[in-house]
Simulated scan of single mutants.
Amino acid sequence: MTMLKPIAFLILIVCTNFVVTECRTIQPNDENLIQQICKKTPNYALCIQYLHSDPKAPSTDVRGLALIMVNVMKNKANIAINKIHQLIGKSPPDQKEALDNCADNYNAIAVADIPEATEALLKGNPKFAEDGANDAVVEARGCENGFKGKSPLTAENNAMRDASAITAAIVRNLL
């Protein structure tokens, strides 16, 4: 019985050591890259927030960080498209044209800009990725400016504009 205690203690030490050495933690260099890259963007805090929301960020390179941000853009576009479809059905007539314009803008982001940026990053042509991200900024602004008065999509347009501007700034590090 007394022999089991030292063996159990040894097993506990070995298992703890295994868990500690096998766990993936953010290494200082990984976090340093994210911080360095985000400092070069127009919104450091938001960049950090977006990149930290993806578990792959700490172990990737600049291209990987840019791809993570393109995915953020895709998510923001999908949120906006869903809201636009909800609003079109119940919007006042004076907003219908602006909402249709926003649907076109976000369709361009989802069907052209995001795939262009993704493909360009995967093929090693960052200039086209930057162009796709910058185009998404223009499309989101166009949606916002299409309303006469208060836009029901201000939050979504700002989110897309911010994510796209951060993406473009990260991609510029690859040029």
Rank of each mutant, 00 (worst) to 15 (best):
Q86W: 06
D104Q: 13
L99M: 03
D135R: 15
E130S: 08
I84G: 06
K123L: 14
N71Q: 11
L121H: 11
Y106H: 06
M73H: 00
A98F: 02
A110Y: 11
A108N: 14
A136Y: 03
N107C: 06
I109T: 04
N78D: 12
N71F: 01
M73L: 07
P126W: 00
E97P: 03
A112E: 14
P126R: 02
N75R: 13
N75C: 04
G124V: 02
K90M: 09
A98T: 05
A133G: 10
L122D: 05
S91P: 00
P92I: 15
I114N: 04
A136D: 07
I81R: 09
N134T: 12
V111Q: 12
Q86T: 11
A110Q: 15
T118V: 09
D113E: 11
I88K: 08
P93W: 14
L122I: 13
K127P: 03
Q95C: 05
N78E: 11
R63K: 14
A98P: 03
P93L: 14
P126Y: 01
M73T: 02
E119A: 14
I84N: 07
D113W: 08
N134K: 13
A77M: 06
E97S: 10
N101E: 09
S91C: 07
N101A: 11
K123H: 10
I88L: 13
N78V: 01
M73I: 05
Q95G: 05
N134R: 15
A110C: 04
A120N: 04
L65N: 04
A120M: 04
L87G: 05
I109L: 05
A120H: 04
K96T: 10
G132E: 05
N107G: 12
A80E: 03
L67Q: 10
R63A: 10
K74W: 07
C102S: 10
D104V: 06
I79C: 03
T118A: 07
S91V: 07
L122G: 01
K90D: 04
G132V: 06
N82R: 10
L121F: 08
N125C: 10
A66Y: 02
E130K: 09
K83V: 03
N125S: 15
V111D: 15
G89D: 08
D104Y: 09
K123W: 09
V72P: 12
E119P: 01
G64N: 02
D94H: 13
D100C: 00
M73D: 06
A112G: 11
A108P: 00
P126K: 02
A112Q: 15
D131Q: 15
Q86P: 06
L65M: 06
N75V: 07
N82G: 15
